[in-house]
Amino acid sequence: MEFSLYKVHGSMNTFYMLDGAERNDYEELTLKLASLDPQTDGLLVVLPSETANAKMRVINRDGSEASMCGNGLRCVARYVCERDGLEEGVIETMKASLHVKKEQTEQDGIAMYAVEISPVSFQLADLPMAYNGESEWLLKPLPFVSEEISYTAVAVPNPHLIGIVPAEYQTDPTHQQKWAEYFNGPNEYFSDGVNVSYVTKVEDGIFVKTFERGVGFTNACGTAMTASALVSCLAGLAPYGDVNVYNPGGMVKCSVAKEGDSFSLRLTGNATYLSTHRFEWQEDDAKSGFLSSEPLQEQALYEKFIERTSSVTEQFVK
């Protein structure tokens, strides 16, 4: 079987994307793509939906399925809006149907999309996380991990553990990697694993580095950046409203609004097409592979955009 694929990214969180039908072997396809391309974080599948403009499935590079991906959703939003001639729409995901909207193009000519991030829960059962019989964990150290790092557990709906750290934890990721790998292996706290992000205040926002469940350290994780903006507002690192969130892949804006005890979250950033591909998928895995590839020109525009963020990111990304 032959597939037409786009290679896309949001904040350098890079995926292959295909417009397809529901199948039970997308996990195997993703593993094959990951074996051929170490730079991909997984596969985005655009499917028909009975209730929305389209449905999105997200397969991580290790073959596991994520309930949501904010960076991937921006890319799917662009594809569906351009395919169907829309300015905005609704994309069905595993846990919720989310509003997406085309935004004004960046001055460098970059396609920008805003996507809703929802639902939001601080209940440990929704991650799930188990620790000392607690129901929530907000802005407190986990003593067995570190006495100086305040952690918050939140599902958006992907599970996240957000730590607020001084800059030295960003330049040396040893601590973050140790505990992220532990929490994503056999452990008594996170039965399904968790995305672990470390957050540091910078002059006009926050910097976030994420160890993503099923992926490892990633250039950016959309739900992690949005969850980190939410936690930063709760902690007083940033005011409610639009938060500049820097990451190893660039910068996005996360909007955090508090309405009583509930929150509304929105993620705005690039949706960039890198290349198009024809891929042959055969039962004999050894015979599967790319038939052709055509690079596009959008990455050069994105690189101009992220030059403006380099003064922030370079102090943390070596």
Rank of each mutant, 00 (worst) to 15 (best):
D172P: 00
P173Q: 14
P173H: 14
T174V: 15
H175C: 00
Q176H: 01
Q176K: 11
Q177E: 15
Q177P: 00
K178M: 14
W179F: 13
W179M: 10
W179S: 06
W179T: 08
W179I: 13
A180T: 09
E181W: 00
Y182S: 12
Y182Q: 11
Y182R: 10
N184Q: 12
N184E: 10
N184Y: 06
N184I: 07
N184C: 15
G185V: 05
G185I: 07
G185T: 12
P186C: 04
N187S: 11
Y189T: 15
Y189I: 10
F190D: 08
F190Q: 04
S191E: 15
S191H: 06
G193E: 08
G193Q: 05
V194M: 03
V194Q: 02
N195G: 05
N195T: 07
V196T: 15
V196P: 02
V196I: 14
V196K: 02
S197C: 10
Y198K: 00
Y198M: 13
Y198I: 08
Y198E: 07
K201Y: 05
K201W: 09
K201H: 13
D204W: 01
G205S: 07
I206R: 03
I206K: 04
I206V: 08
I206L: 04
F207R: 01
V208F: 06
V208N: 01
K209G: 09
T210D: 09
T210V: 12
T210M: 11
T210C: 10
T210R: 04
F211E: 00
F211K: 05
F211Y: 14
E212T: 04
E212Q: 13
